[in-house]
Design a protein around this nucleic acid. Structure first.
Lengths: 162, 162
DNA sequence: AAGATACGTCAATATGGCTGTCCCATCTTC
DNA sequence: GAAGATGGGACAGCCATATTGACGTATCTT
């Protein structure tokens, strides 16, 4: 019996295309906010923290660490910078007083919204050009790239949608 | 007259979802090759150069610079490392002797193929889970994220497909 | 011959990660 | 109430990857 042609072999072309589009798409999208960040003397690492705090107010440090998948020290520096600039504030957890709950200040919210505008204009233009069915496919493939252990965390972000 | 509801407003949810999936998908995919790179004492920057040289043999330095969108100095270090390890070699351009044409050595090809295996297994699993129509949508949205000026460059990668 | 281009290189600097270790406050469990 | 686990902070030192700006050399174009 001849086995079915290996899908791994057949898909090299498609896989390379995906790798390349992901690289260019992701890097160009992230570059779109560099200017806004530079106005405050911040970098992309700061934006990532800002973004997830905006998304899940009262997030704890350890939850944010899991999202970003960096070390406590790296995150510490970033949060210090954001705190010093008055963009992020913490309060002690009501249930567990060891925890620090992270929130954006009003200024932080305004800044995050400003950065988000750049992301929105790039992404919504791409969505519009591609069409809604394409957007669904875009999401599905990306979901498949996320290791199963991380999926619940990502899915949780979608729950508290406006 | 009531204007149509602003699509920018309506799409915040979708845009946030895209931002998040892109972040997690991209970072998790790139992490999948770190182990292989570490075996040779190399980092992700080296892989990016290796990848595009594999993809377009006889690429010039300036073409590669445009792809990666980094500075000459940054790329110089990466290429020196790759040359020292016998993964990349250069020859003088036949038409324009100022140019250096970049190629992978046999060892370089084998190493790139090994790294590509990790990318292939992640991406092709995601493709398979999502289905072919989703893959098309995935590509379309990502294409829309690439600034028009860069699109020809990315499209050129698809021409010399196996 | 003059100027532009392709590439290399020097020096200095910034950012954002890492490891390992130790500490304190607080919660949980026995 | 004591022991241990957990959440968070902090020190020191390191590495990878990027930046800017200036300058040099070979080669191509006009």
């Amino acid at each position: 019996m001849t086995p079915a042609a290996s899908p791994l072999f057949l898909r090299e072309h498609e896989v390379r295309r995906g790798v390349e589009l992901l690289f260019f798409g992701y890097t160009r999208l992230t570059r779109s906010i560099d200017e806004g960040l530079a106005e405050h003397g911040l970098g992309r690492a700061h934006h990532r923290a800002l973004y997830f705090i905006a998304r899940q107010p009262d997030l704890t440090i350890s939850e944010l660490l899991k999202m970003l998948a960096i070390t406590k020290q790296s995150l510490g520096r970033v949060l210090t910078d954001l705190g010093e600039r008055g963009l992020v504030e913490t309060r002690t957890g009501a249930i567990d007083r060891r925890q620090k709950l992270l929130r954006l200040t009003e200024e932080g919210k305004a800044f995050e919204a400003q950065l988000f505008d750049a992301l929105r204009s790039s992404l919504s233009a791409a969505y519009a050009a591609a069409g809604q069915e394409s957007v669904t496919g875009f999401w599905r493939v990306l979901e498949g790239l996320i290791p199963p252990d991380d999926r619940a965390m990502v899915a949780a972000l979608q729950k508290d949608i406006l």
